Simulated assay, not measured.
Amino acid sequence: MRVYKFIVCFFLFAHVSWSQTNETQKDSAFTPYELLTSYYNNNFKPFKKKSIYIGLGLSLEDRQLENTDILVETILDGDRTKFDLDFKGGYFIHDYAMVGLNINYFQNKFTGRTIKDGDSIQSNAISRGFAITPTFRSVVPLTANERLSFFTDIGLTFGGSSTVSRDVKNIDEIDKTYAKNFNFRAGISPGVIFFAMENFALEIQLDVLGYELNTSTKTTNGGDESKTIRQNIDFNIELLSLKLGLSYYL
């Protein structure tokens, strides 16, 4: 899930930075808290012009489902596995102003028994997709040492995905479906940056305002192609869309 993003990476980076801090502490009388605090009071300027931003995200999900209602079907028993990878990069073209690029790749796989239209079906489905998002970020420090800051991302997302599914009612009745999706989104996402350890920062971000266009095509058993176009404008504050991330500033 999104709320678990980057936790593995955070502990890895935290371990490396903590080891470096311990080496410094051997030659110092300061406590670890004083050492970490003093780091941000000595000309710490993470958002200055020509700074580089690097972000990495990973989310994994493996769920066992039983007698679960999802949209128009009921899952009797099944296994759903998902992973989501995010790569982020940016360059500060001016103090507190950054241009960046986010690349996302994901996969969603399901295997199990479901009920559709009153029939029990053995279902297998897999979806893979990607998205590329050019962004512009503006940052407003909330503390004098810039350790806590507010930011706003404006981004344009272009993405696509494909889904292959196979539903078996009995040996003689098999439905194979192939679907393709194209997605475009223009959105504004505010958030907060907190530097937890040296140049490593935690980011909390929320999608607030956006316009989305989705085009979907679908064929079943090689028959005629159906097409659906959806447009959506949203303006809300939904805690379920909260994203937690880890980033590094050079």
Rank of each mutant, 00 (worst) to 15 (best):
N102D: 12
R128L: 00
L85V: 10
Q122I: 06
D175V: 13
D167T: 09
T68G: 01
K176V: 10
E146M: 02
L71V: 13
Q122P: 00
I126T: 09
D167C: 11
V99P: 15
N181Q: 14
I126H: 07
F158D: 10
R166Y: 01
I70A: 11
T152I: 12
F92M: 14
Q122G: 04
Q122T: 06
D117T: 14
A97Y: 14
T114V: 15
N124E: 14
D167R: 08
I174G: 01
T163A: 00
L85P: 02
T114Q: 09
F158W: 14
F110T: 09
S149L: 08
R147G: 08
K169S: 07
I103W: 10
T74V: 09
E73A: 13
R166S: 09
A125M: 13
G78F: 02
F130S: 11
P141N: 05
K169L: 13
Q107R: 12
V140N: 02
G159N: 03
R63Q: 13
H94K: 15
N104C: 07
L71Q: 12
N145T: 09
S161K: 02
Q64H: 13
S162Q: 06
S149R: 11
G159K: 05
G160S: 14
N104R: 14
F158H: 12
K109A: 02
I154F: 08
L71H: 13
F150I: 03
N170S: 04
I70N: 10
G118T: 07
L101E: 02
D153N: 15
L101S: 04
Q122Y: 03
I103H: 15
T157I: 04
F130Y: 14
L101Y: 10
Y178N: 11
Q107D: 10
V140W: 06
V99W: 15
T163N: 01
R113M: 03
N170P: 01
G90Q: 09
D79W: 15
F106A: 07
E73V: 12
R147A: 04
E66F: 00
Q107A: 11
K82D: 08
T177M: 12
R166M: 02
T143E: 06
D84S: 01
A125D: 09
T111A: 08
E61A: 11
F150V: 04
V140F: 10
R128V: 02
I132S: 01
L156W: 03
K116E: 14
I154A: 10
L71F: 12
T114S: 13
G112W: 05
R63G: 10
R113T: 10
K82L: 10
D86W: 09
L71I: 11
T163L: 04
K180G: 03
V72H: 10
D119Y: 08
S161D: 06
V168A: 11
P141S: 03
D95Q: 08
I132P: 02
D84R: 00
N145R: 09
R147Y: 06
V139L: 05
N104S: 13
I121Y: 05
T157F: 00
N170I: 00
K109F: 00
D153L: 06
I121G: 04
T157E: 09
R147V: 07
D119E: 14
H94R: 15
S162C: 02
G78P: 05
I70G: 05
I132L: 06
F130Q: 08
F130N: 04
L71W: 14
T135G: 02
N108L: 06
T74E: 15
